[in-house]
Amino acid sequence: MVNNMRKIAIYGKGGIGKSTVTSSLSAAIASMGYRVMQIGCDPKADSTLNLTGGKETVSVIQYLQENGNCENLDDIVNIGFKNIVCFEAGGPTPGVGCAGRGIVTTFELLDELEAFEIYKPDFVFYDVLGDVVCGGFAMPMRNGYADEVIIITSGEKMAIFAAGNIRTAVKTFHERNGIELLGVILNKRNVKNEEEIANDFIVSSDTKLIGTVERDDNIQIYENRNQTVIEGDPTLPISKNFMAIAENIIGGKSS
């Protein structure tokens, strides 16, 4: 394994904005000169679209389904904005198969093809579907994959509930593998007393706030162009905010 590589899994309730925030953070950190890899862990295989200008990445599971096996990283990688290395796990058609197993298979293949040794990223972001629903979706927390977890939540009740489940999973895996909860990013939905609700969760979880993302129409505008705001206009306040959160992540190694 490559030394000094930081591997961070991003978890949160479905629809909370994980892919948007993760891609923006990848773009921000890559803009600072770091080598970044983003691995989408969602059957929809759309985590990295805003990094690749909308060019779809052939998902690992799709490739395996069509070709039987994969012997070359070039067949499944997409190099995006600022040379961010993009992979998508992909998965089954909704309603059939096992998406969790798809993530396991993807990680094992990336290991076998020595993706980390070849690309030598400084930061790896795992953008994980939903909260921790089974062993497969916990894969990024398992030994040798992520070392740190960031929870993205709003102040909505179900988002906080999902965040609690993730915190429980981190505790379980901390005992085995030493994984740490790096902190929480509050992605605001304009819920009443949102910051207070989030703060209660953060305090009860004995963790910290890494940053707050305000609602901003520019995110949507640039997403429609398959870009992050960092790529679209780095001078915007929302872009500067993501840069500041990225700085916090870079400076805030959990262990």
Binding site: G100, G135, A138, N143, F173, R176, N177
Partner: peptide, 14 residues
Amino acid sequence: SAVIASDHKGVANI
């Protein structure tokens, strides 16, 4: 164990 993604490495660590 493969389908439920048993965490063998974690168990081995303990």
